[in-house]
């Protein structure tokens, strides 16, 4: 192994020479400069909750995801309906998913500790989420209760995601404000099913991630 600390010293000294700064920065001054950076972009949303959910739904549909608005008492029934329509039985679920969501008649397997080969054998995955952003139609997952490790929502070809209205914010900055406290957790933003535009700029759904996405929006 090359001596990394030589390289490190050389790079730091080259940077400091170029910037003409001393080795120990005045951290308070740097922090003050950072705090004074201009931030006049839109941070707080302005929509009422009806408009907000409409926008979120609209974005998801544009991405070719299925969206259903349901009420909390119907979660389990709606899950059964969608899985039935999709013809999927063997479904991965993460730790911490509320058991009352699970309808009878399906093979739900707690797959939080499954390896990728085991996950590859399943027909879909059911999760909740941490937060969702209406303006961009994005849903954010973290390694937390009802969401599980990243591979869980990646390997199976179908993802059914339950999003509560209170989890939907309008802007990307609002989204980050909600994530700040748990920023260290592995985090995935997904906006529609996996897609590529690498061939002649045609958007093609489903390359490596789940090709099918359904969202249950709980009011």
């Amino acid at each position: 192994m090359p001596n990394s600390s030589d390289a490190r010293d050389a790079i730091f000294s080259s940077i400091r020479t170029a910037l003409q700064v001393p080795a120990n920065a005045d951290t308070a001054a740097v922090a003050a400069e950072y705090a004074a950076l201009p931030r006049l972009y839109k941070r707080e949303g302005t929509m009422n909750s009806e408009a907000l959910l409409d926008l979120f739904t609209h974005r998801l549909v544009e991405y070719d995801a299925g969206v259903c608005r349901i009420s909390a008492e119907n979660i389990s029934r709606e899950i059964a309906r969608i899985l039935g329509e999709r013809g999927r039985k063997r479904i991965a679920i993460p730790d911490g998913l509320p058991p009352e969501w699970l309808p009878a008649g399906f093979d739900f397997q707690n797959a939080s500790r499954f390896n990728e080969h085991q996950l590859d054998q399943l027909e879909g995955v059911l999760t909740g989420c941490t937060v969702a952003c209406a303006e961009t139609g994005s849903i954010v997952l973290q390694n937390a209760a009802a969401q599980g490790p990243r591979s869980l929502t990646l390997v199976p070809d179908f993802h059914l995601c339950v999003v509560f209205a209170a989890q939907v914010v309008e802007t990307v900055p609002e989204c980050f404000a909600r994530l700040d406290a748990t920023a260290a957790l592995p985090t995935t933003f997904f906006s529609g099913p996996s897609a590529t535009a690498d061939i002649e700029m045609t958007r093609i759904k489903g390359v490596h991630g789940p090709r099918f996405l359904d969202v249950l929006l709980v009011l």
Partner: peptide
Amino acid sequence: LQTLPRSATGERMNPYNSIWTGVHAGDG
């Protein structure tokens, strides 16, 4: 994450963003 996707591919958000720190037991 607002300016990059819109500038790069003309999407409001690209399909996936991953953010992680170091290693996380049982994930990745």
